[in-house]
Nucleic acid binder design. Structure first.
Length: 310
DNA sequence: AGCTAATCCACGAACGCCGA
DNA sequence: TCGGCGTTCGTGGATTAGCT
């Protein structure tokens, strides 16, 4: 009796942690980024300075003065968001045999130290991994979404508008960022058949550029990328944004438990990527041969072998 | 004519590798 | 040990296409 009470108490506490304490991306995360980064960087390395002497994260849409392009903030926000995603997923994954590895190197997939993948879930706690140890690959593409003003007298930042009010386009709203992510994922897919069992997910914190909604769904259908996931529930100050694309190629998560459901779903399926360019006659032949196997699973595996010409 | 989106190019800092 | 090279990070500028 006591054990059952304790069990439910534990479950309850877990639920509270997931729903209340663990938050997805929000303005508060960006504030933390600036306050933290201020300890290692000058304001001029984190903010633009306008002609009238204000420190801003982005150039406002109506700003007509002299402008420059910050480079010093890029790797800082890259590091911060990667670390943030790692911590978030670390708390969602309860399995003791799974590890999160940042900047992972997977030589058999052509992923070398020159261009490591941002984050993977792996069965081994090492930087250099075998393809068979990698459960999921995450490509993190997150930005500062809101515009911020910095006050150096109080060392404080204040939010001054969402991404519709400034010129820079954050994360998934930028089409060439998406192209870059797709390119990297294709690179992994075509590197080796060993990658065909590994789901790839792109993580962002802004709505997906309209032009890529259909493509995101197609990429999921054909198996190249298992999803573009936005971890920012409320990217706008007023109004709503797209929750998901019809086939779920893009999803905006409302909370961490929803994220966890989708993550678990990725693990529960034994997914296989396959592709080809073959005439119907040859495909028919493959299907006939594969059909000689005893059950659906073996038939499927045989078919995969055939189209890959093992 | 004026707007937006897509695309391509460039930027500077950081980091790891490799050869001298 | 040092310097060059390749790569990534996220943002801005320029140009073009397409829409109203």
């Amino acid at each position: 009796m006591n054990n059952i009470v304790i069990y439910f108490l534990k479950l309850f506490i877990c639920l509270i942690i997931i729903v209340v304490i663990m938050r997805l991306w929000s303005k508060n995360q960006e504030k933390i980024f600036f306050i933290n980064s201020r300890k290692v960087a000058f304001p001029s390395q984190l903010f633009y300075k306008t002609d009238d002497g204000r420190y801003l994260a982005y150039w406002p849409k109506d700003y007509r003065g002299r402008k420059s392009t910050l480079q010093s903030r890029n790797s800082l926000i890259g590091k911060f968001t990667e670390e943030w995603v790692c911590k978030l997923f670390g708390r969602l994954i309860v399995d003791d045999d799974l590890y999160l590895v940042k900047q992972a190197i997977i030589p058999s997939l052509g992923i070398t130290s020159r261009s490591p993948v941002d984050l993977v879930i792996s069965t081994a706690n090492r930087k250099i991994l075998k393809a068979s140890e990698v459960k999921v690959i995450f490509e993190v593409k997150m930005s500062i979404v809101w515009n911020w003003q910095y006050f150096d007298d109080s060392n404080n930042v204040v939010e001054i508008g969402d991404f519709r009010t400034h010129q820079g386009k954050p994360s998934f709203t930028r089409s060439d960022s998406i192209l870059k992510a797709i390119g990297k994922c294709i690179g992994i897919r075509v590197s080796s058949f060993e990658s065909s069992k590994i789901p790839i997910v792109v993580i962002g914190n802004a709505p997906l550029s309209n032009g890529f909604c259909k493509k995101a769904d197609h990429l999921k259908r054909v198996g190249v990328i298992q999803g573009f996931w936005s971890l920012n529930p409320f990217p706008l100050n007023h109004g709503n944004t797209r929750k998901t694309t019809p086939y779920g190629g893009y999803i905006r998560f409302n909370n961490t438990s929803e994220l966890k459901r989708n993550l678990d779903n990725l693990f529960s399926q034994d997914l296989n990527f396959f592709s080809g360019m073959e005439n119907p006659k040859t495909l028919g032949k493959y299907i006939e041969i594969a059909n000689n196997e005893n059950n659906y699973e073996d038939k499927g595996l045989k078919f995969l072998k055939l189209i890959r010409r093992y």
